[in-house]
Design a protein around this nucleic acid. Structure first.
Lengths: 191, 191
DNA sequence: GTAGATCTACCTTCTGGTAGGTCGATATAG
DNA sequence: CTATATCGACCTACCAGAAGGTAGATCTAC
């Protein structure tokens, strides 16, 4: 793995733990056993680095979404795959919060370029969820009382709210508990 | 209003915007038109200040909760009063996020004393919500399929998730939209 | 031998924090 | 009714360390 990739990975972990202003080139250099100046060689400024971190995650997530939409025809199964991903990440604390979520909370204080990338992620996710919800309604797995848009936002809210709960109560299990309660209210008896 | 109170108020606003590491004594001093050193006179360390900010909010919220439980016998009305408070704060951007919520997202990187205060707030809120939910079920206003504990966490998740959504999409209206969708799924036809 | 990656050494600005002084109000003693 | 001691609030002037960032030398692999 290239140094640039290691930097992106480790920076992501630091941001998830402490936010944009909670990590520094010095921390990052120490973690990788290199000097600060070497980071500037790969990412001239902190904004460059953080944008790269967010964009890399967006790319990965878009790929996973595309694969899911290709391979899994069942809408509810797609949603459960997404939820399971986060359940695992939060349970084993390998990624205890969504990177873009942490940054979103700090949004008003972030450099504009970072903000653009973060909003981009939320849009990517929101658009996919709209498609899945519409599909789920057609398949009879999701209650059709509401517009797909509403269900999508409902679901996204649940995911991010559940992450905040897990962190605030220092209890990873809270994520599973709360998300499952939400899913139950979204499904029909057919799913 | 005393200088200490102004400091607590302004620090709160700065934290809500930028988080613990996103504001400094220098910012705060500038906002109030005093010198940095004067802040240290009132709050020797940054931890002292931030703990004071969180504890002040906890006190206010506990008072409001007590008043609500005294004056408003109807559980659903209590919940709506709470929701309306946040709808107003977010709509007019006077308090666009919960202070403790911002800090909760940064929790792993915060000084221990701040973490204790933040978890304290979430507990206060969670305990009240449990009481309201139990009352609401007895009054027939809230679906009784679930334990009050589950409903309480469900609701708390919705509030914090909706705040994240409003911030991430830079659209205060998203808070109302999403929270109302949640309330609809929690109520019975009787409420 | 050239290009990319890393290094040492340094800069400027900001950080939280301290030392010690000034000012005005209040309390007290003659 | 003064004179003075005390105190809280605020100030100027610092400090050490960390922040993000730069310049230029060295090392390494093709």
């Amino acid at each position: 793995m290239s140094t640039a990739d290691k930097l992106i990975g480790e920076a992501g972990r630091l941001i998830v733990n402490a936010g944009y202003n909670g990590f520094s080139y010095a921390h990052l250099a120490e973690r990788l056993g290199i000097r600060k100046a070497s980071i500037h060689h790969h990412f001239p400024s902190k904004v460059d680095l953080v944008v790269a971190v967010v964009e890399q995650q967006r790319t990965v997530i878009r790929q996973q979404i595309a694969a899911l939409e290709n391979d899994e025809p069942d809408a509810m199964a797609q949603l459960l795959a997404y939820v399971d991903y986060w359940k695992r990440c939060i349970e084993d604390q390998s990624e205890p919060f969504c990177l873009a979520g942490v940054l979103a909370v700090e949004l008003p204080a972030l450099p504009e370029d970072v903000g653009v990338a973060v909003r981009g992620h939320f849009n990517d996710l929101g658009e996919w969820l709209k498609r899945v919800m519409a599909l789920g309604v057609r398949q009879g797995a999701i209650q059709l009382e509401l517009e797909p848009e509403t269900s999508a936002q409902f679901f996204q809210t649940a995911i991010y709210g559940a992450m905040v709960m897990a962190r605030a109560y220092d209890d990873p299990g809270k994520f599973n508990f709360v998300v499952d309660a939400f899913l139950a209210r979204m499904r029909t008896d057919r799913s």
